[in-house]
Write a protein that binds this DNA or RNA. Structure first.
Lengths: 164, 164
DNA sequence: TTGATTGCAAACCGTTTGCAACGCC
DNA sequence: GGCGTTGCAAACGGTTTGCAATCAA
């Protein structure tokens, strides 16, 4: 499924969700969805807010937060809190058609990488059964330092694809 | 290693750390350490602040935060951000003599359970190698619903041992 | 028309900070 | 005695909320 059709599918899903819930199909909501699905990074609310201001539908911060919550409710975005320091703000990513994955957070350059490991599924099942717990979702974050060449470069101020 | 000797060890470690760093061995710091090591739950700063006010050394919020940071620096407490809702505050737990573990967070009763799974270590190693990443630490949180009898009871307002 | 949604700014809440008083070294 | 630490309250930053204006239904 390529990019544009992924957005089409997301848009259809949002439309269906809004109608089902009796919510309005405002242009702001679809504009935000479009921006979210044009991105491949883990952005925060402020970054999304600023990105929207270069677009046809600049929106307020309140609408950004409200809409992100709507998109989360209907499974179109995932929200993360990559703690481990004083970085307190939430980060978001599109979720349609992407399986849940773990994250690597570099404590130097703050870039985020993703990974999948099938063994995690076994852990969820084993632990859930052993501790009488019905697991809905999970968050696995590995903190450390990326050892590829971009990292040092980033610390000196150059830009790259998936900052923080 | 039983409880009191665990605190003794922690106290010795803190003392050593403070001296090494040229920091002062204030009574507040040791009082907070004592409270932290008398607990077996995942508490937040506010809970610790209130707990200290029943003790010989009531301390200010500023001191709570400052000291928790000191204890974290010397490896005596771990800090967590159990997101997945609007719960934005950090939670802490003693760490001396306890290996890193995963957490199960019940979305109903907000209780936190712990678990260890050796397979997680393999994931860290595999992923770290594959993605050129030196893993320092990790956070694995499973969200869902605990199915034991306490859960419903808690939702009706009764108290228990490890309220989130 | 009309009630949900938006935008703005003020409120909120966990956490941090500035500064005077305190107390360990 | 000097300077790190504490306590207080005010500031901070991300997020939420109240309310009037707007707009989809």
């Amino acid at each position: 499924m390529q990019d544009s059709s992924l957005f089409d599918t997301a848009q259809a899903k949002l439309e269906k969700y809004l109608i089902a819930k009796g919510l309005r199909r405002s242009s702001e909501r679809f504009a935000i969805l479009k921006e979210v699905y044009s991105r491949d990074d883990h952005f925060d609310a402020e970054e999304l807010y600023h990105a929207m201001h270069g677009k046809a539908y600049p929106v307020s911060r309140a609408t950004v937060y409200n809409t992100l919550e709507v998109l989360r409710d209907c499974g179109l975005v995932r929200k993360h809190q990559f703690g481990e320091d004083d970085n307190i703000k939430s980060r978001y990513e599109k979720s349609l058609g992407r399986q849940q994955h773990g994250h690597l957070v570099c404590l130097n350059c703050h870039r985020v990488k993703e990974f999948c490991d099938p063994r995690l599924q076994f852990i969820k099942t084993t632990v859930g059964t052993a501790l009488h717990f019905e697991v809905d979702s999970h968050s696995l974050v590995l903190y450390g330092e990326c050892t590829d060449e971009h990292c040092e470069a980033r610390m000196l101020g150059s830009v790259s694809d998936d900052m923080d």
